[in-house]
Amino acid sequence: MTMLSVDNLAVTRGGLAVLEGLSFGLDAGHALVLRGPNGIGKTTLLRTLAGLQPALHGSISMPPESMAYAGHSDGLKSTLTVTENLDFWASVYGTDSIEGALDRMNLRGLTERPAMSLSAGQKRRLGLARLLVTGRPVWVLDEPTVSLDAASVALFADAVRAHLAQGGAALMATHIDLGIPEAAILDLAPFKAKPPEQGGISGAFDEAFI
């Protein structure tokens, strides 16, 4: 079953087209890794897929209420404890239990610690645990393994595999090896938008004012 399909998509950053003519599909049980040099538009593409910004051109189709997005920052409240942070997102997404997520991301010993006293890697693990409590089938992750040590990268890879085994799907942008060799890789470099004078799509500079 196709969880996400993108057809002839063009996305913009700051009013300039960065990617164009992008088409791909993502089936249940599969993971897709986006690669490409800095500034190619990986984050912009993910934000567009998550609905945070409109696409310049093309179409995105996925079942409604199916996506969980995790960006560069984890969205943690530093004065709330690990449990309180996760409980909040669990009730926003209407899921009941955070226990599985705590175990899977090895946060069991940290439950009562405020998020501000966690290390960078522990915060990242908490951010990834948030994905588990959303209960959404399609994960859209931006650099998910930044600041994780080797053991935590393995934890993350296991969590993604378990998610895929349950019929989920994952789309990840990264520069680092994620420890998931079975994931397909999509290089974004061929889809770099051409300047308008070479026949590319021109973005609207005043898009914020429309």
Partner: peptide
């Protein structure tokens, strides 16, 4: 600043 506004905007509320 901490990114939770992005996450709230993509949440089902």
């Amino acid at each position: 600043e901490d990114g939770s506004l992005d996450l709230l905007a993509t949440a089902p509320v």
